[in-house]
């Protein structure tokens, strides 16, 4: 149907590319998305799909395996054959699951191929509300009534980040979990909570429309995508975290496969083919490969496990 429609609509973007010289890939590649269709992880990889297919010369089959907050899909990826034909659209969720102690695998059971995009966590308030900045939130929260902070589900990376914010500011935050980011955003817009902690892409349209106002974000330095939002660092709190998305493979995947993927992604990055889409999705292309990537993952895992703290079993 997809091919049929492609021809029907004369969409030039989906033309099959000529086969590449090297052996890999010789058949379709399964890409496990451990969340349901429509989430950040799913949109990230679906938007990247045509670009990757063109460079790899084979079809990517996206498999949404959403159970267990990502646990089912990731477990499936860990136990697949490490031949490069089953890969995972990876993100922070892997590290939070690990930190919560709900799963049998750790990030060491994966070979990380590339980090492709990242976005900051943002704490945002209603633009018409009584809190205007991080300082007023923190000082308001020390009185009798704690500040109500909405976030996505217990154990999600945004929720754990919210805990980290509460810990590091020492403020009396009443963390209220919502089933997902959009429910939390609508609660903040309707003044049912005082602030939300979520990933920047989820908050993008709310911030852009001026309904919500970002008061702090978790990058080390200010970002072009959110020039008006100050960092936690510059407000005196030592908190640096990013939401990242990339590609991982089960441990032991051949070096040649990894090279092929790194090449393809480097090419996409160099041509800037994904820049606009990434920006539209509220993320930034910030690629990382090899050892630097492994260091980055290890560091993020440490921060997450510290923040999960007593939540973990």
């Amino acid at each position: 149907m997809k091919k049929l429609l492609g021809t029907l609509t004369l969409a030039a973007a989906v033309v099959a590319a000529p086969a590449l010289a090297a052996d890999y890939p010789t058949k379709k590649i399964d890409m496990i998305v451990p969340f349901s269709a429509g989430g950040g992880n799913d949109t990230f990889i679906r938007a990247l799909q045509p670009l990757l297919e063109k460079r790899l010369g084979e079809d990517l089959v996206i498999r949404n395996i959403p159970g267990g907050g990502g646990a089912v899909g990731m477990s499936r990826a860990v136990s697949s054959r490490a031949d490069g034909y089953t890969l995972l659209a990876a993100s922070n969720a892997m590290l939070t699951l690990e930190a919560m102690g709900n799963v049998a695998f750790t990030h060491d059971d994966f070979d990380f191929i590339a980090k492709v995009v990242e976005e900051p966590y943002v704490i945002a308030v209603n633009s018409d509300g009584k809190y205007k900045d991080l300082k007023s939130l923190v000082s308001g929260a020390t009185s009798d009534t704690p500040i109500r902070i909405g976030s996505s589900g217990v154990g999600s990376s945004a929720y754990i980040t919210a805990r980290a914010v509460a810990d590091i500011t020492g403020a009396n935050f009443n963390l209220i979990p919502y089933p997902g980011g959009s429910e939390a955003i609508s609660a903040a817009m309707g003044n049912h909570v005082d602030a939300v902690v979520l990933g920047g892409s989820e908050l993008r349209s709310a911030l852009k429309s001026g309904r919500l106002k970002g008061v702090a974000m978790s990058y080390a330095e200010r970002s072009d995508s959110l020039p008006d939002v100050p960092t936690f660092q510059e407000q005196g709190y030592d908190l640096t975290l990013t939401v990242w998305r990339g590609i991982a493979a089960p441990k032991g995947t051949p070096e040649a496969v990894e090279q092929k993927w790194v090449e393809a992604i480097k090419q996409i990055v160099a041509e800037g083919a994904y820049d606009k889409t990434a920006r539209n999705l509220g993320t930034e292309v910030s690629p990382l490969y090899g050892e630097k990537l492994d260091e980055f993952i290890d560091h993020s895992a440490e921060v997450m496990s510290a923040a999960a703290g007593d939540l973990a079993k």
Partner: peptide
């Protein structure tokens, strides 16, 4: 939802 997800990559570039 599945139908829309399936079409999503095709809309890219339209």
């Amino acid at each position: 939802a599945m139908a829309i997800a399936l079409l999503l990559p095709v809309t890219f570039g339209m």
